[in-house]
Amino acid sequence: SEEWVEIALRLLELGREANINGTILNLHKEEIEELIRRLLKRI
């Protein structure tokens, strides 16, 4: 399964939302940290 691709796409999506909203992603901080942890486990 290409889970890391899904994770990377989700991170990009959150990054785009952050640019549009001008936020520092506090809302998504925990989700982002969890996604990155899952991503690093696969490398």
Results as ranks from 00 to 15, higher is better:
K41T: 08
A8I: 15
E30K: 13
N21I: 15
W4G: 01
L9I: 06
A18D: 03
A8F: 14
K29T: 10
W4N: 00
G15L: 15
L35Y: 04
W4R: 01
N26E: 13
L12V: 05
I43P: 03
E2V: 08
S1W: 15
L11H: 01
L11T: 00
V5T: 04
N26Y: 12
N26K: 03
R37V: 04
R42G: 05
E2N: 14
L14Y: 04
I36Y: 04
L25S: 12
R16P: 03
K41L: 11
L9F: 08
R38A: 09
I36G: 01
E2L: 14
E34D: 11
R10T: 02
H28Q: 09
L27H: 12
G22R: 04
E3S: 14
R16T: 04
R38V: 05
E30D: 13
E17L: 14
L40H: 03
E17S: 07
I20E: 07
L40A: 03
N19C: 15
L40K: 02
R37T: 05
A18Y: 06
E17A: 12
L35C: 14
R42Y: 15
V5Q: 06
E33I: 14
E6C: 15
E34Y: 08
S1C: 15
R37A: 05
L39K: 00
R37E: 02
E31T: 02
L40E: 01
N21A: 11
I36D: 00
T23P: 09
A18R: 04
G22F: 07
R16K: 06
A18V: 11
A8Q: 02
K41G: 05
L14H: 02
E2Q: 10
N26Q: 12
E17Y: 08
R42W: 15
G22V: 12
E13L: 13
N19F: 15
E31C: 15
L12F: 05
L27T: 08
R38M: 10
E17K: 07
E33H: 08
L9T: 03
I24V: 04
I24C: 15
A18F: 11
L14I: 12
E33F: 12
L27E: 06
R10W: 13
E34G: 06
L12D: 01
V5N: 02
E3M: 09
L35E: 01
N21P: 07
G15W: 15
G15V: 15
E13I: 12
E2Y: 12
K41H: 11
K41W: 10
L27P: 04
W4H: 01
W4T: 02
L14P: 01
E17W: 11
R10I: 12
A8K: 03
E6H: 12
E31K: 04
I43S: 02
L9A: 04
L27N: 08
I36V: 06
E34M: 12
E33R: 13
R42K: 11
L12H: 02
E6R: 13
L25E: 02
L40Q: 01
T23I: 12
I43R: 03
E30Y: 05
T23W: 13
K29G: 10
L14M: 03
G22K: 11
I7M: 05
L35G: 01
I7D: 02
L40Y: 06
E33K: 09
R37M: 06
E2I: 14
N26H: 11
I43F: 09
L11F: 05
E31V: 10
R16C: 15
S1I: 13
E13S: 06
T23C: 15
L14N: 01
E30H: 07
G15R: 04
E31Y: 10
K29C: 15
N19R: 12
L27S: 13
A18C: 15
N19V: 15
E2F: 14
R16F: 14
L40W: 08
H28K: 06
E31R: 02
E30N: 06
S1N: 06
N26C: 15
I24Y: 05
G22C: 10
L39V: 08
I36Q: 00
N19M: 14
R10A: 07
R38I: 05
E3N: 09
W4P: 01
I20H: 05
I24W: 12
A8W: 13
E17F: 08
T23F: 13
E31G: 03
S1P: 09
I24P: 07
I43T: 02
R10Y: 10
K41Q: 08
V5M: 11
L40R: 03
I7E: 01
L39H: 00
R37Y: 09
I32D: 00
G15Q: 05
I36W: 06
L12G: 01
L39Q: 00
N21F: 14
